[in-house]
């Protein structure tokens, strides 16, 4: 009987492991690397400046005896309070365990990856993550049908207001007078049966559709930044919006920027950014002339850039 129980336990463990592995293979863009390590140039975890030999969070090089497990993400700080398990701080209201234990993670859907920031609550992650480093998009399958749907006005309104934490009717007003989604109803793929007798909306986006989208995303991002600046912040939690300039050479700034990027990606697109995407967002820290950008401008620009991608407009 004891033998049978052992066999069953072994089978159970193996099955769960297989399931987790399968999931990670199918979701390669999930947070599998040291995703906010500012010194990891490509995010694949080669030796980096934080002392973690590969960035995947094997036993630390710092000799920290208090790192009590669960940190698979390359924690190199050696902080004495680093411990396993979710330290709470799930601010997104979805209630799932926030793996990084970061109390300010407000975009969260449960970060299965790991922090490399060395923060005192850094924890979580799965040892399996290291087996599947982030894939290049080019390695992914291309959809042959590519049967996308256009996120027309009503859906866009709901998704955008949810992403940026507004009530649907508060997110955007043209000239502060007219509801944006009414003003741009037709370009956003709406119908107008009682007015113009447009019973069937446009089959595909019009010329003015991307313009309407940009106006709406921009206005909502600006509004979010302004509201967050006077706090308490809901979306731009990682940035000091009063800062007149963000220094891209400062590691803490980069860390905050990456975290903010991750929050925006989760809020808009329900996924984590890839390394390449994070790198692109970082470039917004400087203007074309090489001048530093204020925190508010960076917040709006990054929000606008992510929110107006086709990934948010189609599904």
């Amino acid at each position: 009987m004891r033998y049978v129980r052992f066999i069953f336990s072994l089978w159970l463990v193996l099955s769960v492991s297989a399931c987790v592995g399968s999931y990670n293979q199918q979701h390669p863009t999930k947070d599998v690397g040291a995703d906010v390590d500012p010194t990891d140039a490509d995010g694949y975890g080669e030796p980096d400046a934080d002392g973690d030999a590969d960035g995947y969070g094997e036993p630390d090089a710092d000799g920290d005896s208090t790192d009590s497990g669960g940190d698979a993400g390359g924690d190199a700080d050696g902080g004495p309070t680093d411990s396993g398990g979710d330290a709470g701080g799930d601010a997104d209201g979805y209630g799932e365990p926030d793996a990084d234990g970061d109390a300010t993670d407000s975009g969260g859907y449960g970060d299965a990856g790991s922090d490399a920031d060395g923060g005192p609550t850094d924890s979580g992650g799965s040892p399996l993550d290291e087996l599947w480093p982030e894939q290049s998009p080019d390695d992914m399958a291309v959809s042959l049908k590519a049967n996308l749907r256009w996120k027309r006005g009503a859906i866009l309104k709901n998704d955008l207001s949810q992403a940026l934490g507004f009530a649907p009717d508060q997110s955007c007003k043209e000239l502060e007078l007219f509801d944006c989604f009414m003003a741009h109803n037709i370009p956003l793929g709406g119908s107008d049966p009682f007015g113009s007798g447009l019973y069937e909306p446009a089959r595909s986006p019009q010329v003015t559709t991307p313009i309407a989208v940009e106006r709406i995303i921009m206005q909502t991002c600006v509004r979010r930044a302004l509201v967050d600046a006077v706090g308490p912040a809901v979306v731009f939690t990682e940035l000091d919006l009063a800062s007149p300039a963000l220094d891209p050479t400062d590691l803490e700034t980069l860390l905050a920027v990456d975290k903010q990027t991750r929050i925006l990606y989760r809020r808009f697109l329900a996924r984590n950014p890839t390394i390449a995407e994070k790198d692109l967002i970082r470039t917004l820290l400087l203007s074309d002339n090489g001048e530093l950008v204020s925190a508010t401008d960076f917040a709006v620009m990054s929000c606008f850039a992510i929110g107006s991608t086709t990934e948010f407009i189609f599904f």
Binding site: T29, P137, D138, M140, A141, V142, S143, L144, A146, N147, L148, R149, W150, S204, P205, L269, T274, A276, E277, L280, A305, I306, T309, T310, E311, F314
Partner: peptide
């Protein structure tokens, strides 16, 4: 971003997009 994202890669043949 609309070039390097996994979404852009996967749906590169979407006429609508």
């Amino acid at each position: 971003l609309d070039t390097v994202s996994p979404f852009a890669h996967t749906f590169q043949h979407s006429k609508l997009r």
